[in-house]
Amino acid sequence: MSQWKSPNFKNGTFHNLSPTEVMSKDASFLKILLRFFNKPKSVNPPKPLPSVKTDLLHLVAGENPVIVWFGHSSYLIHHNGSNILVDPVFSGHASPVPFMVRAFPGADAFKVSDLPPIDILIITHNHYDHLDKKTLCQLKPKAVYTALGVGKDLPFAASLVTEMDWWDTAVYAEGIRLTAAPARHFSGRGIKRGGSLWASFVLELPGGFKLYLGGDSGYDTHFKTIGDKFGPFDIAILETGQYNTDWPMIHMSPEEAVQAAQELKAKVLLPVHWGKFALALHPWNEPVIRTTAGALGKVKVTTPRIGEPVILNVSYPADPWWEF
């Protein structure tokens, strides 16, 4: 399709709501590349990460949704017998070639074979740390929801895939509604950028539960807009890692994520986009340290180990397990 009928598509590419530079004006791509291949030792944990090997095939089917985080931005949501999987990356790397961005030791505790049957697969955008074809080829979801243009990168029949523009709503089953919402980011799996859209999602589940699935996003006014339209949320799952002063507009700092959670009117913040891959230069556990510190007195934060269940209104793990 050469032309998308979307207000977010102009001059052959998708755009953010606000003018957004992928790199800051004074950033040098060559210097960034050199720093990336000479990262400080602190970007990696000093020993294998701990995890909880939850039996995903027999999650408690109570009245409250269960969330199991797999590190970075991959997680499973289980509720009333339905399984919703978001941005799964189980191949052990988040790059076009395996040796570039490898998972931390211990962070790959789960494989596709550990997953229950998947009803809904959500892919927020097509970057390698969110859309992992090796993982997706092993999945057989009943339905796939993603942003406009991402379908061409997915190994599924077109009949399974629903591509959504910002503010589009889809109903999967009674009580399960999904609305695509804005995010401030970009797309691309090669040299060309902006050929597909990126999105966050509002997930409404039976029992009146509302979850905000943030995907990747820099801070902007869309969080308040979403909070006003759909809030309050029972939980906001927001990126808090892989930030850098060289790309301040496309990823949030931990403090900005706390501000976004407040504007979303979230009861709880689950920080993600950390704990599995080193895509920036900050210490591996700095995102969660800054998030928990910045959220004191502002919003409740849950910090589960990889594989440790979060149960809405019941259990919000908060042990500082990253303090080795």
Rank of each mutant, 00 (worst) to 15 (best):
T221R: 11
L296W: 07
F110P: 02
H15S: 07
I250W: 06
G215V: 05
M164W: 05
A181I: 08
P309M: 14
Y145S: 06
A293M: 12
V272G: 03
G307L: 04
Q259Y: 08
L34S: 11
F277C: 00
K140I: 10
P317F: 09
S74L: 05
N11P: 06
F37D: 09
G218R: 08
I118H: 13
K39W: 01
V68N: 02
D119F: 04
S91Y: 00
T291A: 05
Y172G: 10
V150T: 13
N126H: 05
P232K: 08
P283W: 03
D132R: 01
V150L: 14
I306A: 01
V43E: 00
H185S: 13
T240R: 03
D220N: 14
K265N: 12
L312I: 15
V171N: 09
G215S: 08
I84E: 00
K31D: 06
P271T: 07
E308L: 10
A257R: 05
R102D: 00
F9T: 04
F104C: 03
T291H: 02
R290L: 05
P40E: 04
V112M: 11
N313I: 05
D114V: 06
V161T: 15
A293L: 15
E256T: 06
W4N: 14
V52P: 11
I118Q: 11
G175I: 02
G297Y: 04
A261Q: 13
K134T: 15
P141G: 14
K298G: 02
L121N: 08
R193Q: 13
D26Y: 11
K142Y: 13
A280Y: 02
A147P: 09
A257L: 08
E286A: 15
D114G: 06
L312T: 06
L269I: 05
S18A: 15
N313H: 10
K267F: 10
E263Y: 09
I306P: 00
P254K: 03
I191V: 12
A147Y: 08
V171C: 12
L76V: 04
L203M: 03
A181L: 11
S18Q: 14
I191D: 14
T169P: 05
S91P: 01
K10W: 14
L139Y: 13
F324D: 10
L131I: 04
Q262S: 10
V268C: 03
D165N: 06
W166N: 13
V299H: 02
I77A: 01
K276Y: 00
V314C: 07
G227C: 07
V301E: 02
A260K: 02
V60Y: 15
F223C: 12
T225P: 04
P254A: 01
L269E: 05
T291F: 00
C137W: 13
I235K: 04
Y128G: 01
V161K: 14
A266W: 02
A293V: 04
R290N: 03
L205V: 08
A61G: 07
S91W: 00
R102L: 01
S6H: 09
G208M: 06
T179S: 09
P304T: 03
N126A: 03
W274P: 00
N80C: 09
E286R: 12
P88K: 00
M100Q: 08
I77N: 00
H125F: 13
L136C: 10
V171L: 14
